[in-house]
Amino acid sequence: MIKNRFFLTGLLLLTLIVVYYTFFDSGNGTSVGGLDESVNPAAYRQEIEKQRNEKNRFLKSDAQSPVKDKTNFKGLVYFEPDPAYRVAARLEPFADKTQKLVVRMSDGSEEVYDKFAHAVFSLNDKTGRLLIVKLQNTYSILFRDATSNKETYGGGRYIELNPDQLTGNRVILDFNTAYNPYCAYNPTYACPIPPAENTLPIAIKAGEKYLQHE
């Protein structure tokens, strides 16, 4: 069983950095805990679509792709890019920086992650609170929501965070970048299962949907 902690870390982090520095002005029009109002919606949607196309090209052609039948791979399925699902969250760091989280993997094994902070935000008039974990130099949120096992992958989805954003008391959570792990497409991979506390009661209709790919 191949361990797959996170999906396309390099590509996703590059996407986050590009989107962040292109569309986010930390001093203009953003309310902590709610909608990030600082983006240009049309340009933002265009950039998200571009990154999704790049990911499809990777999955169809790269030797590291988990998709087994690349010939018949038609591309991933997504919710439409929606700036309303790009929200500013307040960071609540742990006073004890040594706290750990034992994460169960899809193959029954376990891995240990650092607890970094909780992100508190408002979305669809509801308050959400999600744990951010750290593994080596990767900061991520592993979560489920009301779409899980329906429109989206039942094992949960992930968001990766730009480390450059994690120096203050707030962070942008862009659910349009939520993605499925390798094990969603290939059972030979083992992926981390979101902790119970990261189950949102609301439907996050943003990011990657789920269709079975061979």
Score class of each variant (00 low, 15 high):
E111S: 13
F121L: 10
L123Y: 04
V112S: 08
D114I: 06
D114Q: 15
V103L: 14
G154K: 05
Y158N: 11
R144V: 06
P163S: 12
T127H: 05
I132Q: 07
N169F: 09
R104W: 02
V171A: 09
D114W: 03
N124E: 12
L142D: 07
L161N: 09
G154S: 04
Y139A: 11
N124D: 10
R104T: 09
A117Y: 02
K150M: 12
P163N: 10
K126H: 06
Y158H: 11
E151I: 00
P163M: 14
V103P: 14
R157S: 05
H118I: 03
D164Y: 14
L135Y: 11
N124G: 14
T138D: 03
D145R: 01
N162D: 15
A178H: 09
K115Y: 06
V103S: 05
I141G: 09
I159D: 10
S109Q: 10
Q136S: 12
S122W: 04
I172M: 09
N149M: 04
S148H: 01
T152V: 08
D145N: 06
S140I: 02
Y153A: 04
L173S: 08
L130T: 10
Q136P: 10
I172D: 03
I159Y: 03
K134A: 05
F143I: 01
F143W: 09
A119I: 03
Y113L: 03
G108N: 11
Y139Q: 07
D125F: 04
L131R: 00
R157I: 02
E160M: 10
D174Q: 15
V112D: 01
Q165C: 15
L173M: 14
L135I: 07
Y153I: 00
K134E: 03
T167Y: 09
Y113R: 07
A178V: 00
V171Y: 08
K134N: 12
A178I: 00
F121S: 01
N137C: 13
T147V: 08
